[in-house]
């Protein structure tokens, strides 16, 4: 075997990235690239899975059979998204079991938005419209991510996401055009979810320590602030159209730039929730841990059944 030095491998790797050639699981990649991807993709997977909980809270109390069927289908999609993403981490050599245990031990993070409670039915509207809306904005550029399996998973996810946002907006717009109480409920949900939705894009560019390297590796294609601005510009007119107001007294349209300018995000709150002190952090992780523990006998039974079938097949 000939000696190839690390610098040369790294040079070739970056050249591939620069030429928009995708990296596949068995290709050589720098350790840091692998680690960054495992961290990002597993956080993303955890977010899909934990994200089922706030909405799952309302499945049994959906106001009609139609709404219930839709919400159930949406939550089922999120489980699927989690699965595509856990599979993508496995292609990088991550151990699935360990990845999930890291969520349960609190070592791994997930999107902070899911640490807020869902207090009324209108929250299903606000989540679909704003939370899935923000997720789509993050995920569309990831379809062109340099790592093949992640990019392919994102293509599937984005196809499925489009109905998620629409069903949420439909709920909001029905409530906003309903009785005064219904409209108030919609406005209240918007008030509670607007700022956490903006936080979903992560810290300001100046504070974001991974952005520069991730952009060089084409894992990320836009900065946090770029995506957040895009989200604000798209969402503000949507709120107006259904007669709801954005809970930001400093929000104004800048004619010159063609963009909305918004008030300061409460980063203190953001970091508090990231550190585990949000309203539902403990509850979310406890629920996931319990789900794993309570499902253990099912997994063992499935193993035993599979083993029995294997033996029976051999004998026949």
């Amino acid at each position: 075997m000939k000696e190839i030095d690390l610098a040369e491998l790294e040079r070739d790797f970056q050249a591939k990235i620069d030429a928009d050639i995708k990296i596949e699981p068995k290709d050589w990649m720098p350790d840091e690239y692998r680690k960054t991807l495992i961290r990002q993709i597993s956080q993303h997977a955890h977010s899909e899975v934990v994200g089922m909980l706030p909405e799952g809270n309302w499945i049994t109390r959906a106001p009609s059979l139609r709404r219930k069927a839709v919400l159930l289908a949406k939550v089922q999609d999120e489980a699927g998204h989690g699965l595509y993403l856990y599979s993508a981490t496995e292609t990088l050599g991550a151990d699935r079991e360990q990845t999930i245990d890291d969520l349960h031990s609190g070592k791994a993070k997930y999107s902070s938005i899911f640490n807020y409670p869902t207090l009324t039915w209108a929250d299903m509207g606000a989540i679909g419209w704003l939370v899935d809306g923000a997720a789509i904005m993050n995920q569309v550029p990831l379809c062109r991510c340099s790592y093949g399996p992640y990019a392919r998973a994102m293509v599937r996810v984005c196809k499925e996401e489009s109905f998620h946002q629409r069903q949420g907006f439909e709920i909001m717009s029905k409530l906003a055009n309903g009785t005064p109480q219904q409209k108030e409920m919609a406005q209240d949900a918007l008030n509670r979810f607007w700022w956490p939705a903006l936080m979903m894009f992560g810290p300001n560019d100046a504070e974001s320590k991974h952005t520069a390297q991730s952009m060089k590796w084409k894992i990320k294609r836009h900065t946090n602030d770029e995506l957040r601005q895009q989200f604000i510009d798209i969402s503000v007119p949507q709120a107006k159209l259904i007669g709801l107001s954005i809970p930001d007294p400093d929000l104004k349209f800048n004619e010159k730039t063609g963009h909305y300018e918004s008030g300061e995000i409460n980063w203190d709150e953001f970091w508090q929730v990231v550190e585990g002190n949000g309203p539902c952090n403990k509850d979310r992780v406890d629920t996931r841990r319990r789900a794993k523990e309570n499902g253990q006998w099912v997994r063992e039974a499935a193993n035993a059944y599979a083993e029995k079938r294997r033996i029976r097949k051999k004998a026949s």
Partner: peptide, 11 residues
């Protein structure tokens, strides 16, 4: 299209 985990081929 992708991969998944399951106890046996039926599952």
């Amino acid at each position: 299209v992708g991969s998944l985990r399951a106890a046996d081929e039926e599952m």
